[in-house]
Computed example of a mutant assay.
Amino acid sequence: MEKVMDVEDVFESKEYGTIIVGLSPVLSSVNKIGDTIVVRTPEHKELGLKVVSVQVSNSPTDKKMVGICLGNSIKPIDIPLGSVVYTIS
């Protein structure tokens, strides 16, 4: 597994469902729609989740701000801040 980002924000959109946001120093393997990611919580629980969409923008510190939409498969309360997102190789 390759680390994508630490979860810095989690929120729910009526239209898109749950969205997780974080900074990624490099954008080597941001997932595509339909790919599976693993979210590891601070309690070491691993959640396998399907990517609905991905949005990437540059941050002021020249890192990539990544927003991953997970749809309605999970609620924001189930993904604590500080969780870590990984790709599945």
Rank of each mutant, 00 (worst) to 15 (best):
K3V: 00
S28A: 08
I79H: 02
K3D: 02
S13W: 15
I77H: 10
V85G: 09
P80F: 05
G71V: 01
G67C: 13
P42H: 06
M5P: 08
V66N: 04
V39G: 09
P60G: 03
G82T: 10
V54F: 07
S53C: 00
S57V: 04
L27S: 15
S89N: 15
G71R: 04
V21I: 14
K45G: 06
Q55M: 13
Y86M: 06
K32T: 07
I77N: 11
D6G: 02
K50N: 11
E8T: 09
V38N: 09
E15Q: 11
K75W: 05
D9T: 13
D62F: 15
N72W: 08
S53A: 11
V21D: 01
P80T: 00
E43H: 05
K45S: 07
E8Y: 01
L47V: 02
S57F: 11
L23G: 01
L23S: 11
V51T: 09
P60A: 05
T36Y: 11
G34N: 12
K32Q: 10
V85I: 15
V66M: 05
T41K: 00
E43I: 13
G67Q: 13
L49W: 11
V4A: 09
P25E: 12
E43P: 00
V85C: 06
S73I: 15
D6L: 09
H44E: 14
E2K: 11
E8V: 10
E8P: 03
L81P: 01
E2F: 03
I20A: 02
P42N: 06
I88A: 08
V26W: 05
P80H: 07
E46R: 06
G48M: 14
V66T: 01
L23N: 10
K63G: 00
P25H: 04
G71K: 01
G48K: 12
P76T: 02
H44T: 14
L49F: 04
V56R: 10
E12I: 01
P25D: 10
L70Y: 01
P76G: 00
K32P: 01
I79V: 10
T61P: 02
K3W: 00
C69V: 15
D9Y: 10
G22S: 07
V4P: 06
R40E: 15
S53L: 01
S73C: 03
D35C: 04
S28D: 14
I74Q: 03
E2T: 09
P42Q: 02
Q55D: 10
T18Q: 05
P25G: 03
R40G: 06
I68Q: 04
M65W: 00
S53E: 12
S53T: 13
M5W: 14
E8N: 05
I77C: 03
G67T: 13
T61E: 13
S24H: 08
I37A: 03
L27W: 05
E43L: 04
